[in-house]
Design a protein around this nucleic acid. Structure first.
Lengths: 246, 246
DNA sequence: GCTGGGAGAGGCTTA
DNA sequence: TAAGCCTTTCCCAGC
């Protein structure tokens, strides 16, 4: 395909915020938050109406080079079609050099619906929030998402003995990060209230090291059994995993 | 475009591991790690030779629905072209229903070069590893074996007073996570060696709360000044940020 | 605008 | 295979 034609097609499409696809042999240079060089090869350039700019190889989900909210400019240099994406804050530039183009076409896209997702962490929290006796008898919610200066806990509750309980819900296997995160909230709350604060971590699983760290911090782990149905999610059960006494 | 033709084009392209692009009006259903429903709209389906499967809207960098390493199957149901992506471990399925297709084409992609990235965290570590006196006079790296055996800090060194120093390098502004991460290493090392262990956090910046937490944990923060040049990165300077005495 | 944190995170490396 | 961690993470909600 002729590079000059391709340039015209793109320039017009940018104005109309169409979805643009270019396939051809190209190289690319990025400079900004990092820097990169991509040598010649067949790639697909995907440009979207909101300025999303992505160079895709024929592998992996993610683009090999990309920019969000970019301003685009095309030009011809040395018999190549150059597509430049630029951005301020942070200052970035991505330059693609097409030596040949197999395909270049743009489409108007009519799309008013966004995806509805079920089984997110937030949804699990909501399912739990209503009835914490699932977790432990006498546990009553105080307020959801109480904000601290350092982040927040998913649920704050009070147990039957009047102790504050911070509850963190994870939809995936809990890792060291999750334990550290909850520990930070626990420490912060302890300092605020100047009394004992329980920390409860709910997750479908936990890694071995994370469990050790949780035990070390006095964080209680509960196995959260849930299923993703459609169009929602359902808590099937919650079981406390006691610290193994050595 | 005729749906039956599109089906043939795709079936053939899957066998040849080509890059496939389909544009048309579709809806989609996902079930697996979570569940989702996407109502009708114009979208682009991008399928790659390695089984990467992505439904793109005309906005955002990321696909609205996707699957990696998927097995693909096409079929026709009720006058719709159905493209099904499935996977085991974890068990997932993504079904796309095209009611109409504007475009469907596949390309053989010749591409042997991958991107070379400069300014990664690992590269910064390597630049530092050679000469720690940048950070503090008398700081010397410990044996590489120790680094590998433990494997949980970027760099392990010894200061002029013979104390073990754990050094964590971050290429971006250090957050609470970074501080927690380094603190975990510090605690672990303390328990192993049963003596004082210094923890040094090197980053271009640090958030306010992260700095407070670092101070609280006795983690020392150093401002790391580097620049991304081409084709590499360069450490420009390292300056210790003392705890502000209130 | 910055900060914190989730994500169906993805993707890589090492044990 | 699992765990841990980096990413030009992306993306969003709060402040």
């Amino acid at each position: 395909m002729d590079l000059t034609i391709a340039k015209q097609v793109l320039d017009n499409a940018f104005r109309q915020k169409q979805l643009c696809m270019v396939i051809g042999n190209c190289k690319a240079e990025y400079w900004g938050r990092a820097a990169s060089k991509l040598s010649e090869g067949d790639r697909m350039l995907l440009i979207k109406g909101d300025g999303s700019f992505a160079i895709h190889q024929n592998k992996l989900l993610r683009p090999v080079n990309y920019m969000m909210s970019a301003s685009m400019k095309t030009s011809q240099e040395n018999g190549q079609l150059v597509v430049l994406a630029e951005k301020l804050k942070p200052k970035e530039s991505l330059k693609v050099f097409f030596s040949s183009i197999d395909f270049c076409q743009c489409f108007e896209m009519h799309d008013i619906h966004d995806v509805r997702l079920f089984g997110s962490e937030k949804q699990l929290q909501e399912l739990l929030g209503d009835d914490l006796s699932f977790i432990e008898p006498g546990l009553t919610p105080l307020k959801r998402e109480a904000h601290f200066e350092q982040g927040f806990a998913d649920i704050i509750a009070e147990d039957s003995k009047g102790r504050i309980c911070l509850i963190e819900v994870k939809r995936r296997k809990a890792s060291l990060d999750a334990v550290s995160q909850l520990h930070r909230y626990q420490q912060k709350m302890k300092n605020l209230k100047n009394k004992e604060v329980r920390a409860l971590l709910l997750a479908p699983e936990i890694t071995e090291n994370a469990k050790l760290l949780a035990d070390n911090y006095g964080i209680e782990f509960f196995k959260l059994d849930f299923e993703i149905s459609n169009p929602s999610a359902k808590i099937k059960g919650i079981e406390k995993k006691q610290t193994t006494l050595v």
